[in-house]
Design a protein around this nucleic acid. Sequence first.
DNA 1: GCGACAG
DNA 2: ATCTTGTCGC
Length: 237
Amino acid sequence: MQVNDIHPLRPDTEEFIHIQERLAKQIDVSRPLRLEDLRTVAGVDLAYAGEGDSETGFCHIAVFDTATMRVMERAGAVGEIDMPYNPGFLTFRELPLIVEAAGKLETVPDLFLFDGNGILHPRRMGIASHASFFLGKPAVGVAKTYFRIAETEYKEPGWEKGSYTDITVGRETLGRAVRTSAGVKPVFVSPGNGIDLDSATDLVLSLTGPESRLSIPVREADISTRRMRREWEKEQK
DNA sequence: GCGACAG
DNA sequence: ATCTTGTCGC
């Protein structure tokens, strides 16, 4: 698929906040989207090997056919990671490999699911929101742990599957703590761009199986990413 | 200065 | 994210 060239993939650190604030103004989280409207959804994730100045990243994108929930295409990218992890700036660390992998896809997925947040971010620009501009497609963020921003807090959702609570800042609801499976820790869902919160929540719940609290596409990408690393390490005599 | 901190 | 064995529980 063709990826949009929104800005340099490795901008100077001083430009990070400016870029995020500029793109944040263009986010649209008012659009309802149902699973039935989507023919394909893609899960994106990365794994890492090494540390410090010799880090290697492994990105994998798994595209699912929503009618059969079978993987219909995969694409990956491996490369050096120069940017260290910094809360609030995850995008700049992972975007280069995501863009490279997406560019190899023949299919243009109708929506992307990310391991991380969407607008549940200090400047409303988590990785799902940011990447959506490059991908030109709706995106949803599903984080495994809570990213507390400003004075945000959330109440623990009920223990039954499908239960959720809102994560709100002032009068604005940025995301939800969602119990995707009974009795397990909740995941944190937030729309990235091109989709509203209700739709994002429904989508994640619909795409979550009994094997994991994560949605199937993200879990598949997560597993694949470690397989990539395993095979890469095997070739590194 | 201290604590918090998506992946 | 990653480093890691056994172990508590359904």
